[in-house]
Amino acid sequence: MQLFFQQIFNGVMLGSTYAIVALGLTLVFGILQIPNFAHGHLYMLGAYITFFLMTLYGFGFWSALVTSMVALGLIGMLIERVVYRPLQDRPHINSFISAVGAMIILETSVIVFWGPQGRRIPNPYPDMVELFGITMSHQRLLVIVAAFVLIFLLQIFIKKTTPGTTIEAVAQNREGAMLVGINVNRVSSLTFAISTATAAAAASLVAPIFMISPTMGALLGMKAFVIVILGGVGSIPGAILGGYILGILEAIGGGYLSAAYKDVYAFGALILILSIRPTGLFGKEVS
């Protein structure tokens, strides 16, 4: 039983990152209607910026994290403007190719400028606690709490502030939003900035526990897509719930079942669910 709870704890921690990353992705996917395949790579860039701020410029963990979020927000806006906006009215597959281009540029630049080797962000909270037989490090607990706070703040932003409600309005009905005078392009920029900034936050939070490397975002980006689609594109609760569920499933699956086939379960589940509900679990019906 102790083993089981330890795995649940591991899974919740993992799920927290998934939830934040998927949340950012679902905003972009739902509003701009484009699959931002470079999301995982922007996540990676966020971790690298935090790393360099801390090791080269002597920033503290929290100030580096916030600066990295701001930087990634700006980079996100730039990418939206350069890579995606010109393709707004074209088939999805064109934005997809464009995203592949952006992914290649991001990953290769990091390798060229900073080398292919993995790097380590010094852990600000390395201590451990043991509760009911479950070992938890402070940093892992921090990730869980911070993810929770971040998700909560985002919810308030979207539901209670004017810029936030315009985002939701565009997500629900693009044409309608335009009719009532919302500047859709500005909303796009804002959404992209929020999306990439949250990815940077997630990356910076887990970086001290793990390792950063130029390829750290590739698999995560793909998983985020699985989560977003399962949860329904544009559905915020779907993304959050999906993130936690996938994290816990992976922890339990990886612990009890074959680790080699772990990703087969997640991806297989996606195919299965889409065949039953072609627009995802919580997705809107498409006419």
């Binding site: 793909m222 689609i229 991806f267 297989g268 299965l272 065949s275 627009t279 498409v286």
Partner: peptide
């Protein structure tokens, strides 16, 4: 199963199948 979905959904579910084959 996969052709029941459309657009990006189809792209992603087929991508998942491709990844499964290589795993």
């Amino acid at each position: 199963p996969t052709l029941r979905s459309r657009g990006s959904y189809f792209a992603i579910s087929t991508m998942c199948f491709g990844v499964i084959v290589s795993i």
